[in-house]
Nucleic acid binder design. Structure first.
Lengths: 330, 330
DNA sequence: AAATTATATACAAACGATTGTAATTTTAGA
DNA sequence: TCTAAAATTACAATCGTTTGTATATAATTT
């Protein structure tokens, strides 16, 4: 069965295509009788307008592109979920592509987005990519880009991100509140600005408000890495009493170590992390964490996108607020 | 800056549109000189063909639709990741929409897929939906549909799913191997065929090969539910020594209870689950599980889709094999 | 040099919609 | 009854491609 088109409807009803088109969208020029006839037939023939024809004619796609390193990721999938939800409400669909942290994939995907004339693009830089040229090109071609999570330093781009500095501060506050004496603070890839922001703010706050607390700073690149780091450091004579995990990934490794070593939380060890809450809630006691929601970030990104499209190019950076969620681990 | 089109290139080069079009795709009719000129200009003007125009002309979209209850889900996101990966390799992009387990959203999304003339659709039924009418309509409109996870009973549809019966059997085998005396087996929503399949096969195998082992069967609807069930039953005088969790969700609840009650795994309690492996690897010892990978299912679904598109409509059901992954919990 | 064949490029229709304008019909005013 | 205004409906161009066919130029054959 071939797809129903305006032409087909027009032929069957002995009307012109334009009349049929207008009848279907309830245009005042068309008489009620005709509208009824047209709509009835459209219904019965299961007419759905061809989005490509419309987009070609209208020069606007009603599709947003989303570029993430990976979909199967606790953070990105909640971000995507939020963007999808808002997009649907606003009549947009989503085209989602993964870069797998690979610059070549990233470029290919950007090409696909351009070929599909997406109305806008939500992009997370693949860690390797450093040629922002293509993104400038997107802007030249009037495709607004909202960066999230891993964003370019260049301030000519629009970005949304977590309030990473606040996260660091809140974590530090609660560690001080716990009266920690010796802290192990594990951060992620030091090349990423997210790690830098969280670490700097945390470090400064600790220095200023608890100068006597000893804090050991280490970077981990994976869960396993974090697990090893924890184990190695815990084996030493002077044990730490509190551990801070910058990401879920790190928390996972640390918790495996804690379970393996049968350390009692929070009596023997305080644990605090930065997370959207899913992983912390897997443990007993629930791990206390500073909440940074990918879902919230998605909502914010969508707002930015809409603002961008309406008011031209309001270049700036917005952040999602962070708050402390009390579990039982501190 | 306006988008570069064939027309624009043609004007600048004083050539016809058709020549430009053919030059860009290296058509033998066009001379080497002309090709070089055209391609150079296209490059410098950053030409990208308009996908809508092509799709309109070619009557084929190079886009697959994916309908899931939710993107932010350990299982669905790995399924999507696999489908996306394969699709990209084959020159397809993905349009992903969420139903949120809501029949109305599902219908709207299907409409969007039809309007976008997707080349095919990967669909997971929203639990509420029972009007398969629309899906028959998709087929009438020559949009092949491959169902996954929550699939219709109707055998006229193409489906892929886990080998749920094998999962149940493998789990039972390993419980018998552990020499379990008293087992708590927690299953999911009894209305879903996935629960029924896993339970029936598990139950039959236990009956046949370990008739003396006492097994208590309970259904849980959420993590919290599972946690409560475990706690309530563990409090009784005769404690069970092994727990089987049909899903990650259930495992999460059970593990919270186990941690809270400070039960030693595997000494005091054997734990086995069905999972893709992410959640089991969060604990120490790592939970032993029967592997059913959403990623694998995605790959299989893609294969089915390609087969469907090429050979017409090979209606059948394929399953992803299951295997036991030894952790340290049994 | 004329006729034939290659080679290179141009023309034009089509895909399915939207929309400004023209044409037709109906209604109303004089 | 004739005409102007209002209400309907039809025509045609357009969006950016692809592709069958026609045309013009160059190269080859006789």
């Amino acid at each position: 069965m071939t797809n129903t088109t305006l032409k087909l409807l027009a032929q069957q009803l002995q009307l012109s295509i334009s009349t049929v088109s207008r009848a279907l969208k309830d245009h005042p020029d068309i008489s009620a009788k005709t509208k009824a006839k047209v709509q009835a037939l459209a219904q019965s023939l299961d007419y759905e307008p061809n989005a490509y024809a419309i987009q070609l004619r209208m020069q606007s796609s009603k599709i947003f592109g989303v570029l993430v390193p990976a979909i199967a990721n606790l953070f990105y999938d909640s971000f995507i979920a939020a963007v999808e939800e808002e997009s649907r409400k606003n009549g947009y669909a989503l085209m989602i592509l993964q870069s797998n942290h690979n610059a070549e994939n990233e470029l290919n995907n950007l090409k696909i987005f351009r070929q599909n004339r997406v109305s806008g693009l939500f992009a997370c830089l693949s860690a390797s990519a450093e040629n922002l040229e293509v993104y400038h090109k997107m802007n030249e071609h009037e495709i607004p880009v909202v960066f999230f999570d891993i964003v370019p330093k260049d301030n000519s781009f629009t970005k949304v991100r977590m309030a990473d500095e606040r996260c660091g501060v809140i974590a530090a506050e609660n560690i001080i509140k716990r009266n920690a004496k010796k802290v192990l603070a594990i951060f992620g890839d030091p090349a990423l600005s997210i790690s830098q922001n969280r670490k700097t703010s945390f470090q400064n706050f600790m220095k200023d408000f608890a100068p006597k607390t000893s804090v050991q700073y280490i970077n981990a690149n994976s869960s396993n890495d974090a697990e090893e780091i924890f184990k190695n450091n815990y084996n030493k004579t002077v044990k730490f009493d509190t551990v801070f995990c910058m990401t879920d990934e790190i928390l996972i490794g640390v918790m495996k170590a804690i379970q393996a070593l049968q350390i009692k939380v929070p009596a023997e060890m305080g644990v605090i992390s930065i997370s959207n809450g899913f992983i912390p809630n897997l443990y007993y006691p629930v791990i206390s964490y500073v909440e940074t929601s990918g879902f919230q970030l998605g909502k914010l990104a969508f707002l930015q996108m809409m603002a961008n499209m309406q008011t031209g190019k309001p270049v700036n950076e917005l952040t999602v607020e962070a708050k402390f969620i009390e579990g039982g681990s501190m």
